[in-house]
């Protein structure tokens, strides 16, 4: 226990980096995932096919491989080398967006097809149909799977420890080495992860109740 309190500053630094990775990637992944889901259900076949191919490719690839690609392969094709942090954020976002897209798509499919037909029948465009009629109704069923995706993202940030970022796992590894493998180090690390994931779950419950409506 003393070990944790003695090393709180180091753990905090790791926590901050993990939180940064999770929040930045979360925002980007939500935006990209929404775009992918919209493309997937759009009437334009090329867009829909691109989205489907993207999702299949990214969600069936190990995250570590996406990181390798971003760090070592992409620069060879002229993609400029960002900071370690941003390369990690981009890798996490590209990967997580595939899961966000699938969660949103299942939500969109949960809204009856008649709702979209009625929206189109009064002259709404595809974008208006999605934003005015479908997504507001999909939100409710989408929140739980979406929070799952974001919790998984938070835990997936640990892959960045293998790519030069001293986030929570990185800090844990250093402290563990320095303290002869004291198991309390990892208890401390776990508590900090929970500080992100448990509030996320609680927030989901609040949002879910807020957007509920009678059908």
């Amino acid at each position: 226990m003393d070990l944790i309190s003695e090393n709180l500053p180091a753990l905090f630094a790791g926590f901050r980096l993990t939180l940064q990775l999770a929040v930045y990637s979360g925002v980007l992944a939500l935006a990209l995932g929404l775009l992918l889901a919209a493309m997937r259900v759009s009437p334009l076949r090329p867009l829909s096919l691109f989205s489907a191919a993207y999702v299949e490719l990214l969600r069936n690839t190990p995250l570590t491989l996406v990181f390798f690609f971003m760090y070592f392969v992409a620069p060879q094709f002229g993609v400029p080398a960002f900071s370690f942090l941003w390369v990690a954020v981009i890798a996490l976002s590209l990967y997580t967006a595939a899961f966000v897209s699938e969660a949103l798509r299942s939500g969109i499919n949960s809204v009856g097809v008649g709702q979209a037909e009625a929206a189109r029948a009064i002259g709404l465009t595809f974008g208006q149909t999605l934003s005015q009629v479908i997504l507001p109704q999909a939100v409710r069923s989408v929140i739980p799977p979406l929070i799952n995706v974001l919790i998984a993202l938070t835990k997936n940030t640990s892959v960045a420890a293998g790519f030069g970022l001293v986030e929570l796992i990185g800090v844990g590894r250093r402290l563990s080495t320095a303290n002869a493998g004291d198991p309390w180090v990892w208890v401390g690390v776990a508590v900090f992860y929970l500080l992100i994931t448990i509030p996320a779950g609680l927030l989901a419950g609040v949002v879910e109740r807020k957007v509920a409506f009678a059908r």
Partner: peptide
Amino acid sequence: RADVGMVFQSFNLFA
């Protein structure tokens, strides 16, 4: 479609 009104069997009001 804005010029063509449509009424469905299952109403399809925006829930």
